[in-house]
């Protein structure tokens, strides 16, 4: 058993090296309690719905979410809007479709099966509208940044006046948590910017947390299923391991050698 503990120790060491290497540039991120962390971590349904509202009303004017469909909003483990609510949400977007029988493209209200409508036609158009910077697609954004949710959460609240001696070009802003501190996205959030339908006070902190939760779900839509299955799988393995351990002891007791 001691040996197995040693193996485990080695494993932790390797993991340590790896996670260390991922966070080469170290800044202390703002901390908050994420409901989806831990063995039984689940999304806060209300936070996901509020987060979706922040995304649609604020982020989506520049940031696409090309891997998500409106149907996802009603799926289990997500914001869990009712199917009717999701249909209404989808129908509120104009979707380009076609070509029709005459060979023409046309627009129609969105359906559940449609992907989230993109804010720009293409990357070039997005860059042209944003001073040359491409607002990254947000589908897997939290997984694509070293600090994950803590980084995004901090970044949204990290706008400051630049320190003395730092000069910023036009259209460049100072952010404490951004790599290199220079960011082309201006501060988007201000207290009371959106009006939450559930009456939650829309502070910058609250909106940051909600939208980050939403982005986490967008990047890992099966996170809840994963945690649930993981717990069952590990319990099952532990029970089986114990049973096999005693079987092994019994079998090896036939000869005078310790296992």
């Amino acid at each position: 058993m001691k040996k197995l503990l040693r193996i485990f120790f080695l494993l932790i060491l390797i993991t340590g090296i790896q996670s260390n290497s991922n966070a080469a540039e170290k800044v202390e991120y703002l901390k908050t309690d994420w409901s989806f962390k831990g063995l039984f971590g689940k999304f806060d349904r209300a936070a996901l719905q509020r987060g979706y509202q922040v995304y649609t009303e604020v982020c989506s004017s520049c940031h696409s979410m090309k891997y998500l469909s409106y149907r996802n909003l009603a799926e289990k483990g997500g914001p869990e809007f009712t199917e009717d609510q999701a249909k209404v949400i989808a129908a509120s977007f104009e979707v380009k479709d076609g070509p029709n029988a005459d060979g023409d493209m046309f627009t129609r209200p969105g359906k559940l099966s449609d992907k989230f409508v993109m804010p720009y036609e293409n990357v070039k158009a997005a860059q042209a509208a944003n001073g040359g910077a491409y607002p990254p697609d947000m589908s897997v954004l939290v997984k694509a940044r070293g600090g994950g949710v803590d980084y995004i959460y901090s970044l949204l609240q990290g706008y400051e006046d630049p320190p003395v001696g730092v000069t910023l070009d036009d259209g460049v802003y100072y952010n404490k948590y951004m790599y290199g501190n220079k960011i082309k996205m201006s501060n988007q959030l201000s207290d009371g910017l959106v009006e939450y339908s559930d009456g939650t006070n829309a502070t910058v902190e609250q909106m940051s947390k909600d939208v980050t939760t939403f982005l986490m779900w967008a990047a890992e839509p099966h996170l809840e299923a994963r945690h649930q299955m993981g717990f069952k799988a590990i319990i099952y393995l532990i029970i089986l391991t114990v049973l096999v351990y005693f079987s092994m002891k019994r079998i090896w007791s036939r000869i005078k050698t310790e296992v």
């Binding site: 197995l4 945690h227 590990i234 391991t241 351990y245 090896w252």
Partner: peptide, 22 residues
Amino acid sequence: IKDGFALLMFMIVFAFFVFYTP
């Protein structure tokens, strides 16, 4: 049986990575 026991221990570690820090 001994390999099986060790394999199961290994699978617990494996499962932890897959399900909790993939």
